[in-house]
Computed example of a mutant assay.
Amino acid sequence: MFESIILSLIGGLTLFLYALHYLSESLKSVAGGKLQFYLNKFTGNLFTGIASGTIITILLDSSSAVIIMTIALVKSRALTFRQAMGIVMGANIGTTISSQIIALDVGKYSSVLMAIGFLLLMLAKKRLPKNIGRVLLGFGLIFFGLYVIEDSVAPLRQSPEFAGWMLALEKPLKGVGIGALVTLIIQSSSATVGMVIALGAKKLITITAGIAVMLGAELGTCSDTLLASIGRSRQAVKTGIFHLFFNITTIILALILFTPFGQLVHYLSGEAPLERQIANAHVLFNCLGVFIYIPFVPLTERLINFVIPEQHPTTSPAHLANPEK
């Protein structure tokens, strides 16, 4: 039994990860240049930076893609470190929209989206309907991948060993560690949260364990941006460090207030199904984290600037020999 479950789970997860990449690349090819333009234009202050990061992450369906794009723009001096901080915070909010979409019970209709998208992609002559086809096909593949994951884990409800392992994730630190490790391996926080939501839909995980693993996914996703900042300018490195620092700070705060946070999620969700409660926790965590952190952005900027100062060019020997030049 376990062999067939694992094979189906790997297949569903692979399809889901490919669909996320395909959708993100399709959206970037449609509006990538314009998005970079708007990132630069509408980040004059922290609040417009947060708004821009949120909107563009919703459009690209990938916070990692937006933050990596931001690091590249900072390296090219098209954005400053201060502008990048707002975009990073906004990206954390924008990525929660995907969890809300994933929590919708649309897996059984995914084949319709895939069919419409494929037909538009193959038969359309103009660029716009072809691009719409790519997006619809991407969403259809995402939902179908989740449907395969949900279907593959359903037999685990009869497994006492799996039930015991999932109950162990109710310990917040253990849940966070597992969530971070899974995200580090598959390189997608959306996939980790998506799997947790799929487990919630089958009643294979509790809300407590779901929140803990979701927090771990927020930590694991920092690996992408840290890797993207290696070998870049110091301003770009600061952006990657800020993403890690911001996520760690908000995760620690959530762990300290873990019980009241869970109670707040339950109160706001009411009688919503478990998968919707997990998606709501994802939204609430990131929105509250940004709201609470806003007053500390100037202090964080000064701290990171102090730890990673700008490297001033050294005086060349030629200049020393001719100081008047």
Rank of each mutant, 00 (worst) to 15 (best):
P160V: 03
K34P: 00
T183H: 03
I71Q: 08
Y109C: 08
L204G: 03
L104N: 11
I101N: 08
Q311P: 00
I304F: 01
P155A: 11
L128G: 00
A272T: 10
G11Q: 01
Y293L: 15
G107E: 13
F118E: 10
L35T: 07
S223C: 12
G216V: 03
L215Q: 08
N40T: 14
A103I: 14
F261K: 05
L146C: 12
H282R: 08
Y267E: 15
V265E: 12
L255W: 07
G175W: 01
R77C: 04
G90N: 11
V196I: 15
V283N: 11
K108M: 14
G175D: 03
I97T: 15
I241K: 05
G49P: 10
I185T: 08
A209M: 04
S111T: 13
M1R: 05
M122I: 14
M166W: 03
L120S: 12
L284R: 02
N322G: 01
M69E: 11
I230K: 10
K28C: 01
E170W: 03
P309I: 07
S24P: 00
I142P: 06
K171Y: 09
T259R: 09
L173T: 02
V193H: 03
I101R: 04
A19W: 05
R82D: 15
A281K: 08
P160T: 08
P298A: 09
G270Y: 13
I252Y: 02
I149G: 07
I186Y: 02
T239D: 08
T14N: 07
Q277W: 00
S26Y: 01
I178R: 01
P160K: 05
T250E: 08
K130Q: 13
K130T: 08
I211G: 06
S229R: 10
I178G: 02
G94M: 10
M85Q: 10
I93F: 04
T54E: 00
